[in-house]
């Protein structure tokens, strides 16, 4: 099983720059301790949140690490899919091909403020956006005539059942260089990511539509704050099978609040406010709980979220080091 850390971006410091410095250090410790991945999520328009741009923070992490995989979970509502496509490709370049790409439609209406699409259609908007992003990474010269996006806007390509149209090979051919300034019907998103055909895609949500969509396209699942991952897992594995896919094609990630200290009671006494399914205790206790979660869900990748209220950066880093030395070797076996 892969093991990583998750940064959800609550600001705790007076200056957000200090939060960022601590997180970057934290990811460096995770890398030095042999963890496999570091994931960054984002939220918009909410007080107390330091990071509304996982890709920008991911780029900073790219420059301060060498080997750890870096996951970003991007909210699509307010982003143009082609912008996300470009940004993520550039991030993959900065990471030397270490990007894991997560996408999420957003959890509340507030985040859709400023979007030109209705909240009630968010799933359809999201699925179309993700389709465009993946096509943009892996194809040159395409037009997309979707329900929400018509790209390029002036394309003369005729509509049919399939929104995706690859440029036909029809002479006389103009190279993209020579095409400048002429009306154009197809576009290419460049540069391409290092990973071919594109970075692995994770859906950051356990909603039934997300599961169905992920299974159909062979995307992975990233569960943050899912109260019943066993149920989600069962549906996902079943749905994959129905689509004729194998489990080993995809990744299944579960994140939990985690805090470990050698003395489990001490660990519990330091945690003031925590989610119901947080894993707090001694390495032995926490390992047992992760193992149980794995048996229950078949997860292939576990993420620790350690930035819990009331803990100093030093305690968080100590907890991470202890997790890495005592628990990680047992999980990575």
């Amino acid at each position: 099983m892969r093991v990583g850390v998750l940064l959800t971006g609550e600001s705790r410091e007076r200056v957000v720059a200090d939060d960022f410095e601590q997180w970057i250090k934290y990811v460096q410790i995770a890398e030095e301790s042999g963890l496999d991945s570091a994931w960054i999520t984002e939220s918009y328009f909410s007080a107390g949140v330091a990071c509304p741009s996982a890709i920008t923070l991911g780029a900073a992490v790219a420059a301060t690490t060498r080997d750890i995989l870096v996951g970003v979970s991007v909210k699509l509502p307010l982003r143009h899919p082609l912008k996300v496509c470009e940004d993520a490709a550039v991030l993959d370049l900065l990471l030397g091909g270490r990007l894991l790409f997560g996408a999420d439609p957003g959890v509340n209406r507030q985040e859709w403020n400023g979007s030109r699409f209705p909240w009630s259609e968010r799933w359809d908007v999201f699925c179309e956006a993700l389709d465009i992003i993946v096509k943009g990474w892996s194809h040159d010269g395409f037009a997309y005539l979707g329900k929400y996006h018509r790209l390029p806007v002036e394309t003369r390509v005729q509509d049919n059942d399939d929104p995706f149209h690859l440029e036909p090979c029809k002479p006389p051919h103009l190279t993209p260089m020579e095409r400048a300034g002429r009306p154009f019907d197809y576009l290419s998103v460049l540069p391409k990511s290092i990973q071919i055909p594109h970075p692995p895609v994770y859906l950051g949500n356990g909603d039934s539509r997300a599961i169905e969509f992920a299974a159909r396209y062979g995307h992975s699942l990233l569960l943050v704050g899912d109260d019943n991952p066993a149920k989600t897992a069962a549906t996902y594995w079943k749905e994959l099978q129905r689509c004729g896919r194998q489990k080993h094609e995809v990744d299944f990630v579960v994140a939990r609040d985690v805090y470990v200290e050698a003395d489990g009671d001490k660990a519990r006494s330091r945690i003031v406010e925590v989610s119901d399914n947080a894993l707090v205790g001694s390495p032995g206790e926490v390992f047992g709980e992760i193992k149980a979660l794995q048996d229950e869900t078949g997860m292939r990748h576990f993420l620790c979220h350690m930035q819990l209220p009331g803990l100093s950066p030093e305690r968080i880093n100590d907890s991470l080091r202890l997790f890495a030395s005592e628990i990680r070797p047992l999980l990575q076996m």
């Binding site: 970057i24 741009s53 890709i55 920008t56 923070l57 991911g58 780029a59 900073a60 790219a62 420059a63 301060t64 082609l82 912008k83 470009e86 940004d87 490709a89 550039v90 991030l91 900065l94 190279t175 993209p176 260089m177 576009l187 290419s188 998103v189 460049l190 540069p191 391409k192």
Partner: peptide, 20 residues
């Protein structure tokens, strides 16, 4: 953007990396 020679379309991530 959409440029045949891979002209960079995303400056802020690159600057974030340079900042470090």
């Amino acid at each position: 953007h959409f440029w045949y020679d891979s002209y960079c379309p995303s400056l802020l991530p690159v600057l974030a990396a340079i900042a470090q």
